[in-house]
Structures are given as C-alpha cells and as structure tokens.
Design a protein around this nucleic acid. Structure first.
Lengths: 349, 349
DNA sequence: CACTGTTACTGGTACGTATTAGGAAGATCC
DNA sequence: GGATCTTCCTAATACGTACCAGTAACAGTG
C-alpha cells in the first residue's frame, strides 16, 4: 500500500506522477480555477495524483515563502489557566481565541510561568514572542521592563487593558473605567446621595487611576462635595462600617480587587452589623461582581466588556500587522448594571 | 534608534553585523556551548549582534528544515473555551499548559472553530498542525477522517482519551474507564445489590464502549446475573423510575453525558417521585458529577484524572519527538469516589 | 511566409535555517 | 621543512513552496 519510508508527499512527487513540473502543480493548486491558464485535462491529471498520494501542503514552507506565520501570540503575565481566577480570565481568553480563529490565525500561548527560571518574555535575551507575527498581552502583574523592551524593539503588540510605557507607544484596548465610574457617581447623586465613600484597592495601576479620575470627575459634575476616600487593605470591620454611616455616608463605591476581598468583606461586615444593602447604605461595584461569593447578589455598578476587549485587541493587532495603522489606543464603554444594591438616599433624621 | 524597515532580522543580518558567515551564526546558536568548536570571542560577537538586532529564529524555516520549534500543538475538536463546558475542559487545558511550560515548550492552540468554513485539521489541503513539532489532540466530537489522515501522515500526535483509528497506530493517554466501572459494579454488589440498571448515553464512542465492557466484566465477576441495560435519551420520567424499582432494580449506574442531562433528569425524576437516593435506590456515576447542577450532591462513582491525563499526554508526545518510543497507549486509573448516593440494598419484602 | 498572439507549460530563484564537507591558517612533531 | 593535526571558520546544499520570467509550440493574420 504505502511506501516504507513514510516521507510526506511533496509537490515534486505529484509532479513526477502526473508527468508535469513542480511549478505546474503549484499553479494547479493555487490558481483560481475559473480563469486559469491550466487546461482541464492537466488539472485533472494533477488532482488525481494529489489524491492518490494524499498530498497536503507543508505550511512551514508556505509561510516561509510568505514571510508570515499566521500565528498570533498570547502572552499572559500570569498563568493562563489559574484555577482560582478562571472567571476573571475566561472571557478574555474566549475573545482572543474566537477572533483569532475567525481571522484564520492560530494562537501561540506564552506564559511567564517560571519567570525565575528565565521564562519571561525574554529567555536569555531572546524574545520568545517573535515566533508569532504579533502578540496580545494580558495580565494584572505586568513587568514594566519587559513591556518597555518590547515596545522599544517595536514588535507588534497590543495590550488588553490600558498600560502606560515610558516610550509611550504601546497600543492597547481598554475598558473606559473613567467614564463608567463617573456615570456610577452620577447615578448615586441622582438618587440623592451627597456623601460617598470610595473603597479603593490601593495600587497605582492604570485601571485604578482611571477609576479614581472618573470618580473625581463624577463628584465635580454632580456637585457632590463631601467625599471620603479610603484605602482599605483588610480591616474592613462591622464597627468601621457603622462609624462611616454615623458620619453621614449613604453610599459606598467599591473598586474590585483581584480576589474581590473588599467587596466580600464589606458584605460580611454589613451582615454582621445588620446594616441593610441597599436599605441602610447603597453599594456600587466598579466592575463585575465576584462569582464565587458564598452569598452572591446582584450588585449595581458596571460590567467590563472582556470578550469584546479581547476581540478588539486581536483585530487591532492584525491591523497593525497589515500596516493599516501605526499605534492605536481604544476605549470600550462599560455597560452600567442596574442591580439591586443601590436605592434612594434616606433622608437623614 | 530602529530601522525604518520592519523586516525581521535573520541570521544573515547577524552574520553581516558580526562579520562572520551565516553558518557560523547558526552554529553559535545551536551548538552545545560546552564542547563547541566556536571560540568564546566569536561567540560573544555573534551573541552581541543577536541581542542588538533582537533576533529570533523563524519557526517556519526551522521546521521546514526538519529542526525543532519547541512548539507543541493543542488541537481541540471543539472550541477550546466554550463557556458552557468550561468545567469539563479546564483541567485538560491546565494540565497541558503546565506540563508544556515545565518542559520548556510553548503551546500553539488550534481550534476547529468554523469547521464549516474549512478550518479543520486540513484547511484547504494544508495540515495546519505542522507548524508545531507535535500535537496533543482533545475533544469529544472527533472527525475520524481527520484523525485517520493525521495518523497516515504520521505526524507525531497523542490523543487525550482512547480513540481507535483504522490504521491502528494512534497514541493516546486514556482513563481506565473499564476498570473503574468494574469496580463500581463490584462495590454495588458488595452492598448486596443484585439487580442493576445501566443508563448509557447511547453513542458508540470509545469511552462508552470501555465503560460498557467494564460493566459486563463487573457483572460477571460479581455473579450479578440480573441486569437491565437501557438507552435513555430523554424520556426519563418519574413513572419509569418507579416502574424500574417495582421491577426489583435497587441500584442505577449512570454514564455521564456531555451535558449531564441523564444524571440531572434522574435526580429530578427521583425528586418528583419521592424516591430517595440512596434510601430507595443507589445511584453511581461513571465519571465526575455535573458541577453546574441546581442541586449539587456528592455522587458516588469515580473521578476522571483529567489534569494527569493531559500532563501524561504531553510527556508522551515529547518522548515520541525525542524518538524514545514509537507508539504508545497509556491507561490511568480513575480514583473511586465514595460519595453518599449509594447504600446497602434494601431487603425486599 | 514572416508576424504577432496565445496557450501551456517549465526553469530558476527566493524564503531562513541546519548541516555537512571541507579549506585556510597556524601549531606540533620528527 | 615537510607531514600531520587542530582550530576556526565558510561554501554549498537541502528543506517545500510560490511565483516571475521565459520558451516552445501552435494558431491566426496579412
């Protein structure tokens, strides 16, 4: 049946069998059949040979010729499949995968797993990502130096999320946290809240900055003058919650953290202090709610269009590759979520 | 700073910059540094040039030449990130990713997304997988023809799960469903059950076959002669359940399906018929329980070592690549799960 | 019959890498 | 001072494909 040597059939084998040249085989296989220069008879002969030998083109050779791989990279600064954070990453991954597939590319997964063993972006001064035509970047705990170096090398790269780099030329697709946060503040103001509390994560990442500036913007716009801004790492106790309410706070705006511990702690504090949400205090979440919470609820706030961000990033990357654009930044709107955790401010006695 | 022309640097560029030949560059990059023929001085010069130009090997050229990419493929016959099945696939993906990363490979994700648009393994006669050194395969709804073609081409491939192919030479890492199912039957027999009901999915996939044969084996070994084997697509009603019990069935063995509808339907039927599990009937699940069930419970049965399977598959694939083995099949044991859904058979009145 | 045009192909080369065979220069030995 | 051996490097080639330039054969035209 088959030859002993299991070498793969090449166009040359086809050519020999069909009694034509390799060039002719290539033409038959690639030329548009409708307006071809190859007559039907020859075409048939070649295709018969193709079928007989079970020929399939070698993509390596093909892309070697074309200069492109049709491979897109996905580099994550954290492990791609962290079981405890799957809900956070899943939509991003799904979006990247879908868009990549639709565009006819394949995806190379890079992880910084084993960074200490030299498996970051640069493995021994060599940029691993370069096996791909370009790369989508993702992750909360980024390495600034890696990013800067990538940008300096100007390897085509798009970050999912706003990230700033000294050189200044990092393309990204981000969620418009500023606008969404401002809108949350306006919603609360419209409900009569005049004294807000902002529970921030306390880091200086770009997403935090964007939310903070949107918050300020909202305060100014709504004419809400009173404002407490508190960085709360852990000690979010029932006592403190009660204290804030006594101070006149009627609504709390919570920035989500990686493990959502602030939101969860707040919920627990409220429960143990018998403070009703939203009866006694309104709570808005600046992002998606924790899905793994023991007592899930329908938080008001906004949601992050993760899948769309990822798809847009892939789209942008491919445009970069095609030379359609130099460097771009794109902000996607975050839909407001109505939820049931905010209510009109109670008239103070 | 950077060249205007954004062509990727090649070994020839390095060679020119370092004042050596392309061959020398290749030697420096590939030769084992310890016992190399290239003196340290030259080596340094070349490496400096490599760093300066940010050179990375072109994987297409490399694999065209027959060399290695350090890229492993992961081909899934379904989309990799289907949100509704995430719990099924997640452990596999995690296992593949971990093992791949640990071995110093990167992962290329191939998806059949848009199979209808001609994006299977063979997109227009091109075996896309070939950009990788080898490939791990995964999925429930496989395409036999694609598999056969892959095996015929003898591209290095390992399936996660037992799959049979006409040619007969498909390597795989599978869960030992037969042994695990036999053990489940023996457990039930030890509890005094003499009349079992087997709810099978009704397809002829290899996993189904393995479970079925293990079931028969268990029956024979335990001397349980009475046995009902029923294919139940949908109409699993409370009435039928009651009927089975009236017939003397004391235990039900359920084969999991993709959407776990059989298990869920059984649970609902039992609830509405006020049949207690395990008081009135014991139920064992031949696989992991549905995680998204409305009323989750601790099913007895066995669990599928998904992550281990995936890791073992990657390991096997790398061994194949290194020429350590020709073709291998490996069965991993499935740990029995005690659960609370089985109990001693009630003595019949 | 010389001419132009068309049809149906083929030769040759480039893509970037790995590898083999071998060459030039110097060192070592007698 | 030749012979032999090392050391360090290069030329050449192969991998499989795509595509350009070209050619041989033949048909049509005047």
């Amino acid at each position: 049946m088959n030859t002993q040597k299991r070498r793969k059939a090449t166009q040359i084998d086809i050519a020999r069998l069909a009694g034509v040249s390799q060039s002719t085989v290539s033409l038959v296989l690639n030329e548009d059949p409708s307006r071809s220069q190859i007559p039907a008879a020859t075409r048939e002969r070649v295709m018969d040979a193709v079928r007989e030998l079970g020929y399939t083109a070698n993509p390596a050779a093909r892309s070697l010729k074309g200069g492109r791989n049709r491979l897109l990279g996905l580099y994550t600064f954290e492990t791609v499949f962290p079981l405890d954070q799957r809900d956070f990453y899943y939509p991003f991954l799904a979006g990247v995968e879908e868009e990549t597939a639709e565009r006819g590319y394949d995806l190379v997964l890079f992880t910084s797993a084993g960074y200490d063993q030299g498996r970051g972006v640069y493995a021994g001064d060599v940029n691993r990502l370069k096996v791909a035509d370009g790369c989508v970047l993702l992750g909360r705990h980024i390495r600034r130096d890696d990013l800067e170096r990538l940008v300096a090398e100007d390897f085509p790269v798009v970050f999912v999320g706003r990230r700033h780099v000294e050189g200044g030329a990092l393309s990204f697709v981000a969620a418009d946290y500023a606008a969404a946060t401002r809108d949350v503040v306006l919603r609360l103001a419209a409900l009569g809240h005049r004294r807000l509390l902002y529970l921030a994560a306390g880091d200086q990442s770009e997403p935090s900055q964007d939310r903070a500036s949107g918050y300020q913007e909202g305060l100014a716009e709504a004419g809400v003058t009173s404002d407490e801004r508190i960085i709360e790492p852990d000690g979010l106790t029932a006592d403190r919650l009660v204290g804030w309410l006594a101070d006149g706070v009627t609504a709390i705006v919570v920035e989500p953290t990686e493990d959502d511990r602030v939101a969860v702690a707040l919920q627990e504090a409220a429960a143990s202090a018998r403070v009703g949400i939203p009866e006694d205090v309104s709570v808005a979440l600046l992002g998606d709610p924790p899905t793994w919470s023991a007592s899930p609820r329908d938080w008001a706030g906004f949601s992050i269009p993760r899948t769309e961000m990822a798809r847009a990033a892939v789209d942008m990357l491919i445009n970069l590759l095609d030379g359609q654009a130099e460097q771009r930044t794109l902000f996607l709107p975050c839909p407001q979520v109505t939820g049931d955790s905010i209510a009109p401010a109670r008239v103070r006695p």
